[in-house]
Nucleic acid binder design. Structure first.
Lengths: 211, 211
DNA sequence: ATTAATTTTGACCAATTGGTTAATCATTTT
DNA sequence: AAAATGATTAACCAATTGGTCAAAATTAAT
């Protein structure tokens, strides 16, 4: 039984993964340490051995998930592409990301609202100053061509992000109005349809906007 | 026999209001019966006297809040107005509604995802069959003029709703990117700006859409 | 092989939490 | 005024939950 010392970090990892799933599904206050232990297949005392407390374990999980979310958004926006290409790529990749991580944004927003001090912790792991300025300055020429002012950027960015994030967030509300989307496959199709829908709507509006 | 003393419904009402606030803020699993009692200024046993259990109290609160949310959306969409007016009115009224009820959608979506059997309960209090069909059929002519097909309605409706709901849902994420919006006053301004932004974007896109 | 260090466990603890109950207080009815 | 009914409370209770600890099991070092 050379079960080896690899179990060291292996066990910690198992716990972390189980905790991630359970916290993401039930939130901090809904999650139970015993359930995490069961899912990880270890004794509950081990959770405290590797991660002092529920709060610590949660914080580590939260930070990782927060990083996952924001890094995805920011890395795409940072890329060196023409504006239109960049937005299209964002919609494509981020909608795929939301398909694979449907529960992620609801979890994050909920915990943020529950625990305001968590919010700023993102700055420890991901750097982003004023994304508006960054994007606006980088695409100065194109912005001018579209007649976009810096002050328009706030509405614009929220709108673009909402195209991909909102359906993931509001899944349960949407499927109430459109029950056929409850089927996973149909919902994913719907999300992928949304790539072109959003891109068309956005750029048609920009191209023809009134001064 | 005179219908009991005024305190009857008064106390029940106080508890219900306190519970509404606390559930909306902390969710089912984060809320404590003792805290509700304190906020209502009554003994904890009274909560059980008027509402059997935490679950019952929660369900009553949830149903009321759910009704509040959906009735607002649906009542506007039902009104007898030309399509464009209707959408503009929706954006106006619903954005004002979201300003006054910022936490409402996050609460609802969270509880729905936590407790799937709650979702369908809406049908007990608010009637809405297929909103898409209802709206599409009612505005058949205008839809044709815009070149909108019935199959476009799903994306369109989600997009329109997201204009008002997403900023309320994603408030904490948005203020992370735009810290100046943390000030309540500025955020409300931002929301009101959004009425015209959304309406312009939507109708410019519709008017110029490619076949 | 022995010892030392690390990891894992079961049994236990104290605090919290939803819920109950019997007594008290207030109001209405007779 | 007394009895009856309803509202309110303090004191408990049982279950759950995060957390601890000493012993056992496993792995590494001597």
């Amino acid at each position: 039984m050379v079960k080896a010392r690899e179990t060291d970090s292996h066990t910690r990892e198992k716990i972390f993964r189980a905790a991630s799933e359970i916290f993401e599904e039930k939130g901090y206050s809904g999650a139970r340490m015993q359930e995490v232990a069961d899912k990880a297949g270890v004794n509950k005392a081990l959770l405290h051995y590797y991660f002092r407390s529920k709060e610590q374990l949660f914080k580590e999980v939260y930070m990782a998930l927060q990083k996952k979310m924001f890094e995805k958004i920011i890395s795409i926006l940072r890329e060196d592409l023409p504006f239109k290409e960049k937005i299209k790529k964002f919609l494509d990749e981020h909608i795929e990301f939301m398909i694979k991580n449907q529960r992620l944004p609801l979890f994050l927003l909920n915990e943020m609202s529950q625990n305001p001090e968590l919010i700023e912790s993102i700055r420890e792991t991901v750097r982003f100053n004023d994304l508006r300025t960054m994007i606006y300055d980088r695409h100065a020429k194109e912005m001018k061509a579209y007649g976009i002012k810096k002050s328009d950027m706030s509405q614009l960015m929220v709108t673009i992000i909402s195209f991909s994030v909102f359906p993931a967030l509001a899944y349960d509300m949407i499927t109430l109005l459109m029950p056929e989307l409850k089927e996973r496959k149909r919902f994913n199709e719907y999300m992928r349809e949304r790539k072109d829908f959003a891109s068309d709507m956005l750029f048609t509006a920009l191209k023809n906007r009134k001064k």
